[in-house]
Structure formats: structure tokens, C-alpha cells
């Protein structure tokens, strides 16, 4: 059974003052959050006490200002960042769309990129070959699929990335601001595919600043602020009325 269970997840990482011969650099790298401590012992509290559960068919929208922890939370769910505290249990095959350029080679054709991206996502060559024509058809790239990736517009790249990420039926799909690059007709098509995915008992987690997108796609909305849950809104599937539950932040 596909599910995501997060209990009191926190992510704290130390700001490593790299051993360097150059002048001290005060810029902060990495995900957002609150900076705590001073001097040589500075820590970033990127996530703090995040708890929620998602079950099959849920579509969660992550909202919040820049640096609130949306992308960081997605990366924790994907397994890129290891949480510092709390427990996490994820059942289901996870795929993610963070940055449409990741995993694509500029010089290679779209077709070759499908193979490379598929291998990176853990697909076998036969699985990639089976899905190739479907991916190309959904992306609507036509003859462009045999041209180098560097000749694609951002919208074309986004279409190819989305088409690939959703073609092998991921049970859990994580997306970060991917949809802005596609045109209106593709966005409608993408929404329909996400509906299909959720109806097949999958889970979608989408981070976006676009409230109307979250409203139209998601059934739940998690608002983050400074790495903490500000509110979790659950909406009936019919989207007629919004039921709001404000969660108290676990300490």
C-alpha cells in the first residue's frame, strides 16, 4: 500500500567553514531555514518537527515563501537529504522532478536523453525501450526528439522531463515548480495525467508558489514557514469546500 508517514522530522546541518586560504565567505549555501548559533558553530535548522501522513490517492501541495523548506522537504522525501531527527516511512516507488535540466545532456538527442535519464532513474534498457514511443508521443516533441537537447526550449525540456517522470507509473511523484515552463495546453494535459496517477492509488507531492495550481491539482495543502508546518489544509475531492486544520507544531 502506497503511503508516506513523517513523524517529527527535522533537518539540521552545520555550516561547514571550509578550510580555505581565501578570505572568510559569509554566504550561506544549501537549503533555506533558520541559522542558529554563532561564530564557528553555526547550524541551519532547515526543517523542524514536520509530521504528516499521506495515503494512496493523496495529492499534497507544498506552499510557503522562499526558504520555507518546500524543496528541502521534497528532497528529504526523495532521500537526497538524510533527516537529523524523527522517523520517516515511505512505501512505494518514488520518482522526482526537481530541476528539468538534471540528468539531461545538452549535446545528446532527446531520444538518447530518455535512455540516460531512464538508466539514472533505475529503469532497465528493455523498460525504457518499451516506453520510448509513449514518452515521445506524450511530450509532443515530434521530429525534435532526434535533435540535440540544447536546441529545445525550456517548455520542450519540461514536457520531455514530465513525460518521462510519469511514464513508468511512479507510485509517488515529487515535483518542484516544474509546470511553469509548459504552455497552457500541456499544463492541462499534465494535470490530467496527474489525476490518472492519483486515481491509480498513487501519491503526488507538488511544491509551488502558484496557489491556483495547488488549488486545482491538490487535495491537501501544507503551508511551511521557516522550516515548520504552519498549517495543513485538507480539501474534499469535489473541491467544493475547504476544511482547514491548523496543526500545532510538535516540539
Amino acid at each position: 500500500m502506497v503511503s508516506i508517514k513523517l513523524h517529527n522530522i527535522s533537518l539540521v546541518y552545520r555550516l561547514h567553514e571550509k578550510v580555505t586560504l581565501s578570505a572568510p565567505d559569509r554566504r550561506v549555501a544549501g537549503p533555506g531555514g533558520r541559522i542558529e548559533g554563532s561564530g564557528r558553530k553555526q547550524f541551519v535548522q532547515a526543517l523542524d518537527g514536520i509530521s504528516f501522513e499521506l495515503k494512496a490517492g493523496d495529492r499534497l501541495g507544498l506552499v510557503g515563501p522562499n526558504g520555507a523548506g518546500k524543496t528541502t522537504l521534497l528532497k528529504v522525501l526523495y532521500g537526497i537529504y538524510e533527516p537529523s531527527g524523527g522517523s520517516i516511512a515511505i512505501e512505494g516507488k518514488v520518482d522526482a522532478l526537481f530541476n528539468i535540466n538534471i540528468g539531461f545532456r545538452r549535446e545528446a538527442t532527446g531520444r538518447r536523453n530518455i535512455v540516460l535519464r531512464g538508466l539514472i532513474s533505475g529503469w532497465t534498457e528493455s523498460e525504457i525501450e518499451e516506453k520510448m514511443e509513449e514518452i515521445i508521443a506524450f511530450s509532443e516533441l515530434g521530429d525534435f526528439i532526434d535533435l540535440p537537447f540544447k536546441s529545445y526550449s525550456q517548455g520542450m525540456a519540461a514536457r520531455l522531463a514530465f513525460s518521462m517522470a510519469t511514464s513508468l507509473d511512479p507510485e509517488i511523484l515529487l515535483m518542484d515548480e516544474w509546470i511553469g515552463a509548459g504552455d497552457a495546453s500541456f499544463q492541462d494535459k499534465a494535470k490530467r495525467r496527474m489525476d490518472e496517477l492519483a486515481e491509480k492509488a498513487g501519491i503526488i507531492v507538488l511544491a509551488s508558489h502558484n496557489e491556483s495550481l495547488i488549488e486545482s491539482v491538490c487535495t491537501k495543502k501544507l503551508t511551511l514557514k521557516s522550516g515548520q508546518v504552519e498549517s495543513l489544509t485538507t480539501k474534499p475531492i469535489k473541491r467544493s469546500r475547504t476544511e482547514k486544520t491548523v496543526l500545532s507544531r510538535p516540539r
Binding site: 522530522i9 532521500g79 533527516p83 537529523s84 531527527g85 524523527g86 522517523s87 520517516i88 516511512a89 515511505i90
Partner: peptide, 8 residues
């Protein structure tokens, strides 16, 4: 994926 995480 499953795990309990803590700062030992």
C-alpha cells in the same frame, strides 16, 4: 524507505 533518525 524507512528509518529513524537521530543525532547520536
Amino acid at each position: 524507505m524507512k528509518g529513524d533518525f537521530g543525532c547520536p
